[in-house]
Design a protein around this nucleic acid. Structure first.
Lengths: 181, 181
DNA sequence: GTCTATATCAAGATAGAC
DNA sequence: GTCTATCTTGATATAGAC
């Protein structure tokens, strides 16, 4: 079991969460309704409530899995890298581009941290913090830059002629070369 | 007339857009329904359609006004400033904090540029570009940082103990001290 | 454990009377 | 120009039968 979050569920609940993930990935958060979810696994929507508490809890499970995947991806990217900051930024962007809908779900609303699997958020943040030499505020500033880049791109807010690879490079360079406080 | 966007509307349409702005500012995008809007100005929802094409067009009018306000605010902040980059960043943050719901409306979805008043988007961007010495890609990187900071703060995504003033300072410093490409 | 039926709520938009 | 009535769609969630 790659995910300890999924591993902690009953088989039917796991099936539901996995179906939710498929629906989310394929059609976005707007398509993630209990009805559509029921359709996907051949069950009426009301029956889902026998296995998952409510929709918020279901979304929290998806978010927990997302954090697990980020933690693995970021750790792999920074391990043995000579430029961990560049590597983790590339990994961050890659995660968001490959799973844009999950990324939105994870960032566009307040986190219900009490519904998350314990520790998953910190586990995802740790490799980024290490890549920034342990400086919390600089790490958050880098995160803001990376999130801004990713979400503005997903929202098609950059002008069509923007050279985003170059923008990424210059932004990262700003953080990489700044002298420690 | 402070706004050329509002100035171009019939009186009734202007009244509707202004009521929409009030509703948005007070209760957020979720409360901005044609029904609620009708209530606010003492008119049934269907009658609104005599004055505004549809909801998307109405939202686009609000966004155009937002860009006008940003342009004025950013220009005022950078004029005669000795540190225009710091000044424009502060103004950007101030705009978002003072009108969080309008800010969301302006950034969280793809822009329907064809529905905007011509030129308003560029007018808001220009003072930022000037503050960055005319470098487009660096300006976009700064924008991504500022947007990331603002939207993560609005979404309550930073941990409660985060010192956001300090994070802003460090992020801006990274961009301010970076050597030109 | 799953079903049907239903409660409740809210949305955008149109037809046609006045 | 505004109204009432309505269409169409969709959501989360519960009650109670099987």
């Amino acid at each position: 079991m790659a995910s300890s979050v999924l591993g902690g569920l009953t088989p039917r609940a796991r099936e539901i969460v996995q179906a939710a993930r498929g629906l989310l990935d394929e059609e976005g958060p707007g398509a993630l309704s209990m009805r559509r979810l029921g359709e996907r696994i051949g069950m009426r929507a009301p029956s889902l409530y026998e296995h998952v508490r409510d929709k918020r809890t279901l979304e929290a499970a998806l978010i927990s899995v997302g954090f697990e995947e980020q933690a693995a991806l970021f750790t792999r990217a920074t391990d043995r890298s000579e430029e961990p900051l560049i590597a983790v930024a590339a990994a961050y962007r890659e995660f968001a581009r490959r799973q844009p809908h999950l990324y939105r779900l994870m960032t566009e609303r307040p986190l219900h941290r009490e519904l998350l699997a314990p520790g998953v958020e910190d586990a995802a943040a740790l490799p980024v913090l290490l890549a920034m030499g342990g400086d919390l505020e600089r790490t958050r500033a880098l995160w803001a830059f990376a999130h801004g880049m990713v979400i503005l791109e997903l929202n098609h807010r950059f002008p069509p002629d923007a050279d985003l690879d170059d923008t990424w490079r210059k932004g990262i360079e700003a953080f990489r070369t700044m002298r420690p406080a």
